[in-house]
Amino acid sequence: MSDIGIFVSVVLTVISAATPLLFAATGELVAEKSGVLNLGVEGMMLVGAVTGFAVTTVSGSATLGIVCAALAAGGMALLFGFITLTLLANQVATGLALTLFGVGLSSVVGQSFVGTPVDALPKLAVPGLAAIPVLGPILFEHDALIYLSVIMVAAVAWFLYRTRAGLVLRAVGDSHEAAHAIGHPVIRVRYLAVLFGGAMAGLGGAFLSLSYTPMWGENMTAGRGWIALALVVFATWRPARVLLGAYLFGGVTILQLHAQGVGIEIPSQVLSMLPYLVTILVLVLISRDQAKVRLNAPACIGKVFHPST
């Protein structure tokens, strides 16, 4: 393969490694911006992955599979919302319990699908643009979910900072009491944000089981839900930085695999630490401006709200 060919191929690998993280982290960002911390991302992703796979296999329609993945993970998020927003339970613990629940549920649902293949999502080349050398395959020759993941980041950025609804959502996350006092429906806004977060985690899961490695295997997320959570923090709650973080993390992961392949004599465990260490390092560099981080961090994150006060 030519050098340029290798470059394109590596970039494509990074993009697909980053996409499940991008979906889940963007969704979680919206939930957190509204003041809700849902640690159940891993569980929601798994439910999305198994639902997407199962529906696609049974119905033959990947589109239906993807929609159902978002709905099923959204259902998980609804459960989380009911327990934390309506019944006012602690969000951190409920989120962790949601992960236990989701791991179990996906395993039960997926039992009969282990060992069956499914066709990977088709690549949709943008006519004309895909033929551009280098940039064409990198930007314009992906499956629908990869395009969607980037579109969603832009859409979320636009929604949060350019629309009135986004302003309300941020207001709710920054001070639910103030938002409530002005008459914003705090709980309803949070429900919607949590549902969106769930649906996005479901899409991330569906990407795993329908595109990244088109198969179902128990626990196939292998911790990606946790990385997504970390990326939201890494991004200091800004959508564009989620994009940056996901590609950075994916990039370092892929690079360390390449480094091993070319025979760099550093123990593989140390190389495997790199993505985590680089993430910490970059976080330290971008967190130094306290005021900016404060500005973006939702002040009410994880806090219970009840309108009766």
Partner: peptide, 16 residues
């Protein structure tokens, strides 16, 4: 998997 689902449920109830 069922035990995981059940465990999650116990926690939901207790937390709520």
């Amino acid at each position: 998997g069922i035990t995981g689902v059940f465990q999650g449920m116990i926690l939901f109830y207790l937390l709520a």
